[in-house]
């Protein structure tokens, strides 16, 4: 299936810049928490339902059951979506205090609105924003950062789809807000141990910017107190 993109090859992005962010919280009326997150042209919408009643077959006696659903834009969910779901679920499970809601279900639905590179990172950021909006207790926040390593070893932060395609390896990390440690990593392609360390260090640096953005967003949101 082909989707013709109206966005032509954008002006060359500098390697060290993160594209502009944008987020909107509680934009949907039905879910308990919702957010949309935009990184450059990549855009994702997230919705959270829960804690709510859980199916008996999925019930866990001492904690909540988290279900993550990723909806592709075109066609049925494929293996790629399933693996991304797993990455997001494991990150959320690590940060959510699931023991506080035993025998209940949490559902996180992520809808791709536009994919223009660094999609998994955008999923993670949207998920964190939606979980915050739903007011679920978390031990820490998390953010997603994607790095691409070009064939000459040059590392690009927050690559666009074109840069991802041209690169030798693409690495996505979930970084936590308290100690800036890696919560999840998803890699594609080949790279050396040194490069991995460099990417992690850069992602940790980049995460500071993202957490700053989170903070400003939340501050802005609660700026009008009753």
């Amino acid at each position: 299936m082909e989707v013709c993109s109206a966005v032509d090859v954008k002006c060359i992005k500098s390697n060290s810049t993160l594209r502009e962010f944008g987020c909107e919280q509680s934009l949907l009326s039905r879910p308990d928490g919702s957010a949309s997150f935009i990184q450059g042209d990549t855009s994702v919408m997230a919705a959270v339902y829960g804690p709510a009643e859980v199916k008996v077959s999925k019930e866990i006696y001492d904690r909540a059951t988290l279900e993550v659903v990723i909806q592709a834009k075109v066609g049925l969910p494929s293996v790629k979506e399933r693996s991304q779901e797993q990455c997001v679920r494991e990150t959320c499970e690590a940060s959510l205090l699931m023991l506080l809601h035993p025998r209940s279900s949490l559902t996180l639905i992520l809808q791709v609105l536009h994919d223009h590179g660094s999609l998994l990172a955008c999923f993670l950021n949207a998920a964190c924003m939606a979980l915050m909006d739903a007011g679920l207790p978390m031990s820490c926040l998390f953010c997603g950062v994607t790095c691409a390593i070009a064939s000459d070893g040059q590392i690009t932060m927050d690559p666009t789809a074109v840069q991802e395609k041209e690169s030798r390896a693409v690495l996505t990390f979930a970084i936590d807000s308290t100690e800036q440690k890696v919560m999840m990593s998803s890699t594609k392609g080949s790279f050396s141990v040194q490069e991995l360390h460099e990417c992690i260090a850069l992602s940790q640096k980049a995460s500071e910017n993202i957490f700053k953005f989170y903070r400003v967003s939340v501050q802005r949101r609660y700026s009008k107190t009753l």
Partner: peptide, 11 residues
Amino acid sequence: ITVNTTDDTSV
């Protein structure tokens, strides 16, 4: 107020 945006940030 539920919306926030930033420009490009460099690392």
